[in-house]
Simulated assay, not measured.
Amino acid sequence: MANPFTEHPREVGENYFQHLATAAKFAATMLVGGICVMIHAFLPFLFVNMGSRTMAKLHKRMTKRVDRVNWERHPII
């Protein structure tokens, strides 16, 4: 029987703790970026480029991981 805690990390070439760290970094980046964009919504002179920079940064990080993943089987959408 497959272990749900290790099956996906193994599919992307990581162990459980490596995957935990990677996912936590992505989550923290998204949270900070999201908060800045929400502030920008009310105060448009603040964090003018934060949303697009955050998205570009995450996209760059994610696409570097493509080589370690079977992209056909596990597309990142």
Rank of each mutant, 00 (worst) to 15 (best):
P4D: 10
F5M: 15
H19I: 03
Q18V: 01
G51D: 04
T63Q: 06
H8Q: 12
F5C: 03
I35C: 03
Y16N: 08
F42V: 10
N15I: 03
I39W: 05
I35H: 05
H40L: 13
E11G: 12
A28P: 03
S52M: 03
P4G: 04
V12P: 00
V48Y: 04
F26Y: 09
V69H: 07
A2D: 04
T6R: 00
L31A: 14
I76M: 04
F45P: 02
H74L: 15
F26T: 09
H59S: 09
F17R: 00
W71N: 10
I76P: 02
W71G: 09
L31Y: 12
A24P: 01
M30Q: 10
A24L: 12
L46R: 05
L58T: 01
N70Q: 13
L20D: 08
E11N: 14
R61I: 09
K64N: 11
V12L: 05
P75A: 09
I77P: 08
V69S: 01
E7M: 08
P9R: 06
K64E: 13
H59F: 06
G34W: 11
R65S: 13
F45H: 09
F5P: 02
V37G: 01
L20N: 08
P44E: 08
L46A: 10
H74P: 00
L43F: 06
T54V: 05
F17D: 01
V32D: 12
T29W: 01
Y16E: 13
G34M: 11
K25D: 15
R73D: 01
H19G: 10
L31W: 07
A41P: 01
N49Q: 06
R61P: 00
R68E: 09
V69I: 15
C36G: 11
H59A: 11
P9D: 12
A24C: 04
A23K: 07
I77C: 05
T54Y: 00
K57A: 15
N70E: 15
A2Q: 04
R65G: 11
P4C: 07
T54Q: 03
D67Q: 11
C36R: 02
M50S: 10
T63K: 03
I76Q: 01
E7V: 02
M1L: 07
H59W: 05
P4A: 04
N49W: 10
A24V: 10
L43E: 12
W71K: 14
H40Q: 08
H59D: 09
L43C: 02
I77T: 05
A56C: 07
V12C: 06
K25L: 15
P9C: 11
T63M: 13
A2C: 02
N15Y: 06
A41R: 06
T54E: 04
A27W: 06
F26G: 06
M55L: 13
H19S: 11
A56K: 02
M62W: 08
P4N: 07
R61E: 12
V48M: 05
K64Q: 08
L46F: 11
G13C: 01
P9W: 09
T63V: 11
V32C: 03
K57W: 14
H8M: 15
S52K: 01
